[in-house]
Design a protein around this nucleic acid. Sequence first.
DNA 1: AATAGTCAATGACACGATGTCAATTTCAGA
DNA 2: TCTGAAATTGACATCGTGTCATTGACTATT
Lengths: 211, 211
Amino acid sequence: MEEKHALTARERKALKTKNKLLEAGKKVLLEQGFQKATVTQIIREAGTGYGTAYVYFKNKDELLIVLMEDVMAKFYDVAGRTFAPKTSKEAYHLIEDQVKSFLSLAVEERDILRVVKEASGVSEAVASYWEDVRSRFIGSIAADIRHVQEKGLAAKHFDPEFTARAWYYANEMFLWDGVRDGSSFPSKKVIQTLTDLYTGGLYKDQEGSSH
Amino acid sequence: MEEKHALTARERKALKTKNKLLEAGKKVLLEQGFQKATVTQIIREAGTGYGTAYVYFKNKDELLIVLMEDVMAKFYDVAGRTFAPKTSKEAYHLIEDQVKSFLSLAVEERDILRVVKEASGVSEAVASYWEDVRSRFIGSIAADIRHVQEKGLAAKHFDPEFTARAWYYANEMFLWDGVRDGSSFPSKKVIQTLTDLYTGGLYKDQEGSSH
DNA sequence: AATAGTCAATGACACGATGTCAATTTCAGA
DNA sequence: TCTGAAATTGACATCGTGTCATTGACTATT
């Protein structure tokens, strides 16, 4: 039901105002962090009236959620990559690549992710938005696990869902470490440790395992 | 430089006031959650004046931190357990036990942990307090890993620190899942998946690994 | 081109929460 | 009994949020 017509001057102006608010919001949020940033700071930066912010966004949370969209798309992109290894070796390298891509986003989008992380702890809306990324990854990883189990590459006694969760969780936490500390991240060592642990496990034999 | 003398009536009263605030704080925080709870609600429940709360606690955060102490002690207890397996099998079972103890705390202390989790996202003070638990666990696990590596039970190419982090992170995230969802937690399946993944890894051979 | 109706924009306001502090009351010790 | 110290208090200043009645400008219709 989209109306298809050239924008009227009025609509163009409205769009411009919204964008000014988004830009100003980005600047203020990155500079101040989520909790310290106030609507007053944002509208001052945007050069609009106070109430105007509430015309375009329900609140600070919703403004951030719009700002998150680009980054989310990048994560969804990584989560959606095809995974169909024919050998364990191939699997290892695919996994290694995916870990690297995932953790590299921590550096690439560090500034905004720092805000997202903070906001997730404060705003239910932002938290549930991030939760979407999580379940997308976990679902995708679970499918990958099922695939390699069927191919006979991976041990069948692992529950795909829980295994995917555990694996994703470790990755996500390192992501946040990277967002916090930045600098030389992700290190080869982190990527390798994660991948090795996931594929091979720490111990030399599995005689202790109950399977 | 501790003064050692029986408490005067005045001191006893002060103690009592502080405890009233702690109890009231606990009740209100558990009922309302961290963000919704207000100082006014707490002092009303405690039957004290508004300012009194600020005599005993810097703010809501610090009150919660005092309430956390008991729970933290339990975690420190689990983190501090000795770990000196002689065989892989023994290691497996020790690890399984530790996972179980750790995750069981999620159920046992569910109510307060739910508040702690929420508060960690909002309050730097609470977050850094919980961070202590984390580093204690990670340090302890890293030591365990070094130990089994020296004994020849575990692969030496794993960096103890990063491996400990990855492992702990997965566990902690499941802990929060348990705090959120509660009910029948921790399931055998979760414990087993975590332990198996950690000790044995998902894949059947390590030929893909670069070692 | 006049006009009625719509929509963007605004800031004052009501509300709610925080942390402080000067004043008050109570008690310990001399 | 008296004095200084300690406990307690709530009013206050401050800050941030979200709403809404109002204003002014633009659109579309006649």
